[in-house]
């Protein structure tokens, strides 16, 4: 019943989410000094991450046929995506901890969909550091694109799809913790691993891997295909051009799969109590 209501009125749980998140933000910024320190710290950490890639280019001019600014475009797009997803639903990584400590039982007795509760729990703006840094890198990369209205549109679609894809990956692979509560690191291979992988042009990987990342686990849609369009490059693997428009579709598939697996996970929990 509740699931149906969620589908019919999707803004309902979203409104709950917003209200809960707002209270957490209020609590967080009531200590402005420590909040500022944490945001700056997080920006610094993420900045070092890109510095590493920039240093690579002191030894080379191109990586997999892409120059630094082009890679910055890839980097910014995937960074914003994982940053937004992490900000919105990062707490889902802690689902195993919630099971172990009994917090999940507490949540199950509250009249808010479980996913909304888990994701909004301990909402923090601290993670904005990553989004900010990725945005700076992306803006720096903008001149490499020959901008047209359709490319501006594609850039917006890319950022949204990238966020949705990471949202799906976070939920999908965190669900394993319903079965083995201390396997939280497993999800990292796909979330942070997916982020690291998409910081590089797919041309550095074997063709088979590129195809797997298109049709099996569609991580390539985070930034690779939209960026090919933005850069006006033909597909290096000779794959069809229309793939460059499929990011929203890939995001929809992954998010749907994630929600289904989530529901299975919750069912497993409520039918075994462990």
């Amino acid at each position: 019943m509740a699931d149906l209501a969620t589908l019919v009125r999707p803004w309902h749980p979203l409104a709950r989410y917003g209200e809960i998140a707002r209270l957490w933000i209020r609590a967080e910024i009531s200590y402005p000094a420590s909040f500022a320190m944490l945001v700056v710290g997080s920006m610094l950490i993420n900045a070092l991450d890109f510095v590493g890639i920039a240093i690579m280019f002191s030894s080379i001019d191109q990586l997999g046929g892409f120059e630094l600014r082009e890679i910055a475009l890839l980097y910014g797009a995937t960074g914003i995506g994982i940053g937004v997803a992490d900000t919105l639903i990062g707490s889902v990584e802690r689902i195993g901890e919630y099971v172990r400590t009994g917090r999940l039982d507490q949540m199950l007795t509250k009249p808010v969909p479980l996913l909304v509760q888990v994701c909004s729990d301990r909402f923090t703006l601290r993670r904005l550091g990553r989004i900010t840094q990725a945005t700076v890198v992306l803006v720096w990369a903008l001149p490499v694109v020959d901008w047209t209205p359709s490319r501006v549109g594609m850039a917006l679609v890319m950022v949204l799809s990238s966020s949705a894809l990471f949202f799906g990956l976070f939920v999908l692979f965190s669900c394993i913790q319903f079965w083995t509560t201390d396997a939280n690191e497993f999800a990292n291979a796909f979330t942070y691993g997916g982020n690291t992988l998409t910081q590089y042009p797919l041309t550095i990987f074997p063709r088979e891997l590129a195809i797997a990342l298109t049709v099996v686990l569609p991580i390539a849609f985070v930034n690779w295909y939209p960026c090919l369009y933005l850069l006006g490059r033909p597909d290096p693997f000779g794959l069809p051009e229309w793939l460059q428009f499929c990011s929203p579709l890939a995001a929809a598939v992954v998010v749907t799969a994630a929600l289904l697996v989530w529901r299975t996970g919750v069912r497993h929990y409520t039918s075994t109590g462990s």
């Binding site: 019943m1 509740a2 209270l23 609590a27 917090r103 507490q106 007795t109 009249p111 808010v112 969909p113």
Partner: peptide, 29 residues
């Protein structure tokens, strides 16, 4: 188990050993 969310509005649960409150927040929050 089917109408868990609807039921949640009508019941209150206190697990003595485990708090439902948020550890780092003031009671008021």
């Amino acid at each position: 188990s089917k109408d868990r969310v609807a039921l949640a509005r009508r019941i209150g649960v206190v697990f003595g050993q485990r708090t439902t409150l948020w550890w780092d927040l003031p009671l008021r929050d």
